[in-house]
């Protein structure tokens, strides 16, 4: 199909246009376009987990049980004091080693375990593929930005009018019901602006996927842009990396524009039937 299209372009437009068409649809470029899926999966998966961790963190911070409060506070403060890239690198490595340690307990002999080398034996090697790395990238993005989301959600829960909660209490709802049916349900409108901000941060952090050995858009951009002086490998060109990075630069800006529109729409939807003063919906 691509060849037919290329032929059509060379017949009806120009040979030059067909050459560029061929260049932009060669296997490497198609792989580049396809690798956008990793970025999107990591962004959406990470965001879903971030909301989950955010809710858990915020609930823990207002729990009646003090150790949960400390846990929630520790989680949000620790993550905020450490660079995101450190956690995104650390979590998959730590998780892999944890699993390998468990595998070693099963697979290796006592002598091998005591030898002090890692991994103790071949049976305790966990070979990770892109899928596993991608899942772990989602979890680490969720962990990092979940702490950010927890802070937003925590603030938003406070913004729910106290009179509503009191009314719920007067009607005889239990504590748990008040929390789940009133506080969590109503806080979204106050949390949305903050969550939109967290989403933007998370989206930008998806550029780190190449650090986890995932062949994402950044890695492909580097491969495609690298100078090619070998005619059999395709079009000869000098160092074009900056052009490919420029495309990524614009790609992320486009994603930001789209996200802004989406969140505006969400805010409009979430605030229907509510009368909010200008700027009140900021958590």
């Amino acid at each position: 199909m691509l060849e037919a299209l290329s032929l059509w372009i060379s017949n009806h437009v120009s040979a030059d246009a067909a050459m560029w068409f061929d260049y932009f649809t060669n296997g490497k470029h198609l792989a580049w376009y396809a690798s956008v899926r990793f970025t999107l999966i990591a962004a959406f998966g990470g965001a879903a987990l971030a909301v989950l961790f955010g809710l858990a963190g915020a609930s823990a911070r207002r729990s009646g049980f003090a150790p949960f409060r400390w846990l929630g506070w520790g989680y949000t403060t620790m993550v905020r004091g450490i660079p995101d890239v450190l956690i995104i690198l650390f979590f998959p490595l730590a998780f892999e080693q944890g699993v390998e340690w468990l595998m070693a307990q099963q697979a290796c002999s006592a002598a091998e375990l005591a030898s002090g080398v890692w991994p103790p034996c071949d049976g305790a090697q966990w070979y990770l593929s892109t899928t596993e790395y991608l899942i772990m990238a989602c979890v680490s993005l969720g962990l990092v930005y979940g702490a950010f989301a927890a802070n937003v959600v925590y603030g938003a829960m406070d913004a729910v009018p106290a009179s509503q909660l009191e009314a719920a209490k007067a009607y005889g709802f239990t504590k748990r019901q008040i929390f789940m049916r009133f506080q969590v349900r109503q806080m979204w409108i106050y949390a949305l602006p903050g969550l939109s901000n967290v989403w933007m941060l998370l989206l930008k952090a998806t550029a780190f996927l190449s650090l986890l050995q995932i062949a994402d858009i950044v890695l492909w951009a580097e491969r495609l842009g690298a100078p090619n002086y070998f005619a059999r490998a395709g079009m000869l060109h000098p160092d074009w990396r900056w052009r490919y990075y420029l495309v990524l630069f614009l790609f992320y800006i486009l994603m930001t524009v789209l996200s802004e529109y989406f969140f505006k729409f969400l805010e409009k939807r979430a605030s229907r039937g509510m009368r909010l003063n200008q700027g009140e919906a900021t958590a």
Partner: peptide, 22 residues
């Protein structure tokens, strides 16, 4: 402001470094 806030610093680093190389 929009461009630099809307794109990852990671990409900006790559872009400027390769620009200067080119």
């Amino acid at each position: 402001i929009y461009a630099f806030r809307g794109s990852p610093l990671f990409i900006q680093f790559f872009m400027f470094y390769s620009l200067m190389l080119a």
